[in-house]
């Protein structure tokens, strides 16, 4: 019976997480558009529903009812499935993120995580790398020069920044002595890692920004050069999937920052889930703020930053952290 309950529980958790995540992503679009427009002294969406609150719904309807075009000469199969890869890999990362304290239900403890993998962090990296495939394949399969160039830029950028992303988290793992995200949160019981590892935090934040290809790192879709980069040829819900993937990644990124550096769901007074949400939201808002403020980097500046600044910094940080740990830890 135990395994059956486990499966049911898993399915319920999956369902809840999925619904919450998708709704969050959809409303994130709204929040972003609204906030962005205010940052630029505009009004933002205000026509669909009160304060434009129904805008995400209208957008979804529009995307769903639009014609699904496949360009002539495109690699049909890959073209059709590439957006799925992006959306799915973003969603799957959330499986290992703990978003609350375990919950006692009928004598069982239900962990507030879909799955507590002991290699959680590697899992996160694995799936965030998989996202590259969606970009590369979508760009290549479109049979369009803009898409192809967008795809190539995307691959180059994401592979470069994966390195610094990984390096920035090594000190965190060293501190927590575990790859499991649950354990990492547990390790921050006293103070969040942002206090101990401000450098790692900054490295992670920048690299993650580059990973999700947002301004100022949106070189793969740079509108004024590449139309829309790797997803130029996509329309309708397939474009919607790329779009969804981007915003889910934003939520995921917020969660990861919360888990790795802000103490996860931990916090005084308020229930863990609320703390978690606040932290995620804060990260997301900062991301939007960045988008509203910074201009896009040039390609060479991007590579320069990644390889010549972030990676050396990450290595130094590891060495220093290791040294300090050796000095103090034992």
């Amino acid at each position: 019976m135990g395994w059956l309950a486990g499966i049911i529980l898993l399915l319920i958790k999956l369902g809840v997480v999925l619904v919450v995540l998708l709704t969050a992503a959809a409303y994130l679009v709204y929040v972003e558009r609204k906030l962005l427009s205010r940052l630029q002294i505009r009004l933002g969406p205000n026509r669909a529903g009160p304060f434009g609150l129904l805008q995400p719904l209208a957008d979804a309807l529009k995307l769903l009812t639009k014609e699904d075009l496949v360009p002539e000469g495109a690699d049909r199969f890959i073209f059709l499935y590439a957006p799925g890869v992006v959306a799915a890999s973003a969603l799957l990362i959330f499986a290992v993120i703990p978003f609350g304290r375990g919950w006692m239900f009928m004598g069982h403890e239900i962990p507030m995580v879909v799955s507590d993998l002991n290699v959680g962090l590697l899992y996160v990296f694995a799936f965030s790398s998989l996202g590259v495939y969606g970009v590369a394949l979508g760009g290549w399969a479109s049979n369009s020069k803009y898409s192809l160039m967008g795809g190539i830029r995307g691959v180059a950028q994401m592979i470069s920044y994966e390195l610094s992303l990984g390096l920035s988290l090594v000190p965190v793992v060293m501190l927590a002595r575990s790859f499991s995200l649950v354990d990492i949160v547990a390790a921050q019981a006293h103070y969040p890692f942002i206090v101990l590892q401000p450098v790692a935090f900054i490295l992670f934040f920048i690299s993650a920004g580059a990973e999700i290809k947002r301004i100022p790192f949106d070189i793969p879709e740079a509108e004024n050069e590449l139309v829309a980069g790797f997803h130029t040829e996509y329309s309708g819900m397939r474009f919607g999937l790329f779009f969804l993937g981007e915003y889910v990644t934003m939520v995921v990124l917020g969660s990861l920052v919360a888990v790795f550096f802000l103490g996860g769901w931990r916090g005084p007074l308020l229930p863990p889930l609320v703390w978690f949400s606040i932290k995620v939201l804060a990260v997301v808002l900062v991301l939007i703020w960045i988008r509203g403020t910074l201009p896009r980097l040039r390609y060479d500046q991007l590579m320069h930053l990644g390889w010549k600044v972030l990676i050396p910094l990450g290595l130094i940080n590891i060495v220093v952290t290791g040294g300090v740990l050796l000095w103090w830890g034992s």
Binding site: L35, S37, R38, L39, Q40, I41, R42, L43, W289, G292, T293, L294
Partner: peptide, 16 residues
């Protein structure tokens, strides 16, 4: 400064 400017915009009346 940049971040401050955009932040201040939040409290201005939109010109739309």
């Amino acid at each position: 400064q940049g971040f401050w400017t955009t932040f201040i915009h939040l409290f201005r009346k939109p010109i739309t």
